[in-house]
Amino acid sequence: MVALVLWLVLKPAPARPGTASAIPVRVASVEQKDVPRFASSIGTVLSMHSVVIRPQIDGILTRLLVKEGQWVKKGDLLATIDDRSIRASLDQATAQLGESQAQLAVAQVNLKRYKLLSVDDGVSKQTYDQQQALVNQLKATAQGNQAAIDAAQVQLSYTQIRSPVAGRVGIRNVDEGNFLRTGDSEGLFTVTQIDPIAVEFSLPQQMLPTLQRLIAAPDRALVKAYIGADGNTGELLGEGHLSLIDNQINPNTGTLRAKAEFDNAAQRLWPGQLVTLKIQTALDKNALVVPPTVVQRGLEQHFVYRVKGDTVESVPVTMVYQDSDLHIIKGVNAGDQLVSDGQSRLKPGSHVQVLSDPPALTKTSESQP
């Protein structure tokens, strides 16, 4: 009798069904929100205007009025070339014009006089015609002199080199005092427009209908540029819009070139830089969004584990859109609790224990080289 009492007191308590076998999992809620879709590509930053500043006449470079790296506006004076010879030619052409105009004035007075005298046969018809020819000749001479003045003024304007665009001055190739020639290939320096700026990129030819739709849309398609060109999204450098697509597809690569334009007041985009682009191609309104780790792939379709009380059920879902950050699915409801970690041990009806804290990080010693 004593032994029976002791056994009843000391026997282990039976395990609660479903408690010891509960599988620890982590869950995520289904969110409903507007989700933009993006297509990715690697692009090269290009200046919309980059001009090599070259002389248009031969001459000595007398002054450089800008420094390397300086920002200039369109029409700003950049440099001057010795203009003394051209000014002398202009003065000579001006003097010749004055001489021709004086001779023309005298000839026209005589022509009027001969015309009156010819009525009474005071002068012969031949004399009148010769005077008329002289007037025409002096008019042509005066026009030639005026053309010489205009040409000299054009040449004189070339002695002042002005910026054709607004932008940033590059590295200087020539110093003051050098003799410049129009055939010099390098030029003085470049002026490159930085703001706004463009990015050129390529996409598969299958994207042509999408790009055409974006170009024709009244709202310009959003394009984001990120630092780096390794395919990973890094730091955001700027937001712009799709501006044009090329007029032909490259038959060798099956790709289509396109351009996006960016406001670049902060100068974070620089000509020649490689960047990662994300082009917004669509906007899914009221989409059901889950983390990528939630969706599992079965033999025939995708599915998720939905928490129901302390158990889970398998729910087939349709994949609408996916990227590295999120998946858009159909087949569940907003607010549903779906398993995001621990699915490998689950099956429909499994008992689960929802964990709230993130797993502790395991410290490992650094390996020595």
Score class of each variant (00 low, 15 high):
P292M: 05
P292D: 10
P292S: 07
T293K: 06
T293D: 14
V294K: 00
Q296L: 14
G298S: 09
G298E: 11
L299C: 00
L299S: 13
E300G: 06
Q301D: 14
Q301H: 12
Q301P: 07
H302M: 00
H302N: 09
V304Q: 02
V304T: 06
V304N: 04
Y305D: 01
R306Q: 14
V307E: 06
V307S: 07
K308E: 15
D310M: 04
T311Y: 00
V312K: 02
E313C: 02
S314R: 14
V315E: 06
P316N: 09
P316H: 03
V317A: 09
T318C: 01
M319H: 01
M319K: 09
M319C: 03
Y321V: 07
D323W: 07
D323G: 08
S324Q: 13
D325L: 09
L326H: 11
L326C: 07
L326I: 09
L326M: 12
L326D: 09
H327W: 08
H327N: 13
H327M: 12
K330N: 13
G331H: 04
G331P: 05
V332S: 04
V332F: 05
G335N: 10
L338K: 01
L338Q: 02
L338P: 03
D341S: 11
D341A: 11
D341C: 00
G342Y: 08
Q343P: 03
Q343G: 03
R345A: 08
R345Q: 12
R345E: 12
L346R: 03
K347D: 12
P348W: 04
P348V: 01
S350V: 08
Q353F: 10
V354A: 06
V354K: 02
D357R: 11
P358T: 13
P358I: 11
P359C: 00
A360H: 11
A360D: 15
L361F: 11
T362W: 01
K363V: 15
T364I: 12
E366R: 11
E366S: 14
E366M: 11
